[in-house]
Design a binder for these strands. Structure first.
Length: 524
RNA sequence: GCCCCGGUGGUGUAGCCCGGUCAAACAUGCGGGCCUUUCGAGCCCGCGCCCCGGGUUCAAAUCCCGGCCGGGGCACCA
């Protein structure tokens, strides 16, 4: 053996390769295909073209955010990749703790569509309660489920010891009677629960005889009101529906990994095949709160302006900032289906987004915190500046300089305005700074030629003459900074435009009202 | 405490299943240069990583064992 290895090692790499080609040509074939698979998402196990069915099952108790987007985008992406079907299923079976709200059913659908999803089917769990009841009854009849009336603490105690609760092994007729009492309202909330039988000695106590349906006295559910008092829990409704709707592949966060173990019992009892599951890690974005409960609290306390507050990580907030759906999609695909948690940085998302919006965003001058600059010795001049430097065909904006009237420059450039410094007003002319005071800047016309500024390495600033009022909201962590300023008057922007304020950053126009513009900062 | 799952540059991912082509690739970031009427974009150069310790092997980021660190679950929530 060693001898052979010695021999092989004695050969040069080329010789080894040549020999290998001779005796095992397939080796090289395999490598080629491996390389090609690298782009985009990896192939899905047990997936057949035309037969893949995926679903996204959010609880409509809050707005859709970047964290949820991972499961949603992966599900949709694979459905398309395999010419399959993508289902949106609202998991609204908790009218109490995680109470659904009507508006979120709409918003989630809208947000998915904005992301470019084609939704093949929509199902709502609260419409399907009777299906769950049928299966519950079926499982009870099979002796695979029972009605437990132990107080929760009592049950937990027994469960941890691996002991059956007193109701577990009672005859089916007794179970059915109790099941009817649950449905009839003869038990109050908390008095009875349907449990799925599992291995009582399962190493993980959390999976032992898990609860499948419980009672809620006054559900006042936004869709079904008080029609139903018995509600399925997540694991039960989800297990039934994934099979009923023909789901073949499930994408969900790793926090659900143990739920798979639980749900498999139902599949085993009913003789169903469990879908292929992919558990991915949690996705968060640097410095942004995604948690629905924290977001809701912040809104209630008045800290945030709403679910689309630009500081938030909801899809609506990102959209409002000028993040494009393709950028979000690209980001999620890049992060892929890794099981570990990932915290992506704003830089990362911004870089992807910038590449997408840079070619479409027209350029304008926005002067934040304007300071007047009085220029002596200059003649009237109209600056004609392309809307986009790489696309002259889009036309120009015109900014007119009138002698005797000041131009406005930004306080952000203050360090450049020192007496005897030279600066170029971009696309206008070069000036020498004479004096800086509280009232403004005094400057003297120097020359028109750009080459002069370039050769002397004079810095360039943007400016406006008579701008229109404009404010830019700049989210910075928990803060929302409002920059007041002037937007060049020839900027014909409308709501939803994504533009670049030169030397300031990319923004999305959020509102144009009474001649005043509000923009939201996306990124540099 | 019990039960899962992870750990590759500052950040995100590829490679791990099937050990050698990996002194590790791509993107972003940072530093520098070129170019350019945006200290923008683009182009070029540079910086920087296999959690630790053992083991198996001619050969380990890759396989095995142990540790450390991180995440998740242990709800009549989803």
């Amino acid at each position: 053996m060693n001898e052979i290895v010695e021999k092989v090692n004695a050969l040069s790499l080329e010789e080894q390769e040549a020999k290998l080609r001779e005796i095992y040509p397939e080796f090289f074939e395999e490598k080629k295909t491996k390389k090609e698979e690298k782009k985009g998402l990896p192939p899905l196990p047990r997936a057949e073209k035309g037969k893949v069915v995926t679903r996204f099952a959010p609880n409509p108790d809050g707005a859709f955010h970047l964290g949820n987007a991972r499961a949603a985008i992966l599900s949709h992406e694979y459905a398309r990749m395999y010419d399959g079907k993508f289902i949106l299923r609202f998991d609204d079976t908790d009218p109490k703790v995680k109470r659904p709200e009507p508006i979120f059913y709409e918003w989630i659908k809208e947000d998915l569509e904005w992301l470019g999803f084609k939704i093949d089917e929509i199902h709502i769990a609260s419409d399907r309660l009777e299906i769950y009841y049928d299966y519950a009854e079926k499982l009870i009849k099979m002796g695979k489920a029972y009605v437990c009336t132990c107080p929760p603490e009592k049950f937990r105690e027994l469960r941890d010891k691996g002991i059956a609760c007193p109701h577990r092994d009672e005859p089916v007729e007794v179970q059915l009677e109790r099941w009817r009492k649950m449905l009839n309202g003869e038990y109050k909330e908390g008095e009875a629960v349907v449990r799925i039988k599992t291995d009582l000695k399962h190493p993980n106590p959390a999976v032992r005889d898990w609860p499948a349906l419980r009672i809620i006295d006054n559900p006042n559910h936004p869709r079904t009101g008080n029609k139903y008092r018995v509600w399925p829990l997540y694991n039960f409704a989800s297990a039934i529906d994934d099979h009923e709707l023909g789901v073949t592949h499930i994408f969900r966060g790793q926090e659900h990994a143990e739920n798979e173990t639980r749900q498999r019992y139902v599949y085993e009892y009913l003789g169903w095949e469990y879908p292929v599951t992919v558990h991915h890690g949690r996705l968060s974005i640097e410095g942004v709160i995604l948690s629905k409960s924290k977001t809701r609290k912040g809104i209630e306390e008045g800290k945030y302006l709403g679910w689309d507050d630009p500081r938030l990580g909801t899809i609506r907030a990102l959209r409002r900032r000028g993040i494009r759906p393709e950028a979000i999609r690209e980001l999620i695909i890049e992060v892929g289906l890794k099981r570990s948690d990932t915290t992506i940085s704003w830089d990362n998302l911004a870089a992807i987004n910038r590449r997408i919006i840079e070619p479409i965003a027209n350029r304008y001058f926005f002067v934040a915190d304007p300071i007047p600059m009085y220029i002596e010795g200059a003649k009237e001049f109209v600056a004609e500046i392309p809307l986009h430097p790489d696309h002259p065909e889009r036309g120009v904006r015109r900014l007119k300089f009138v002698p005797g009237k000041p131009v406005y420059v930004s306080k952000d450039d203050m360090e450049l305005f020192r007496p005897r410094n030279f600066v170029r007003l971009k696309d206008l002319f070069n000036v020498e700074i004479l004096e800086v005071s509280e009232d403004g800047i005094k400057a003297r016309f120097h020359s028109v030629d750009y080459e002069i500024a370039r050769k002397n390495r004079w810095r360039m600033v943007h400016w406006v003459t008579e701008g229109k009022p404009c404010e830019v909201w700049v989210p910075e962590g928990e803060e929302l900074i409002i920059r007041e300023g002037l937007l060049e008057s020839d900027a014909h922007v409308k709501v939803d435009d994504v533009v670049q304020f030169e030397r300031f950053g990319f923004v999305r126009i959020d509102e144009v009202k009474d001649g005043k513009v509000r923009a939201i900062f996306a990124h540099k």
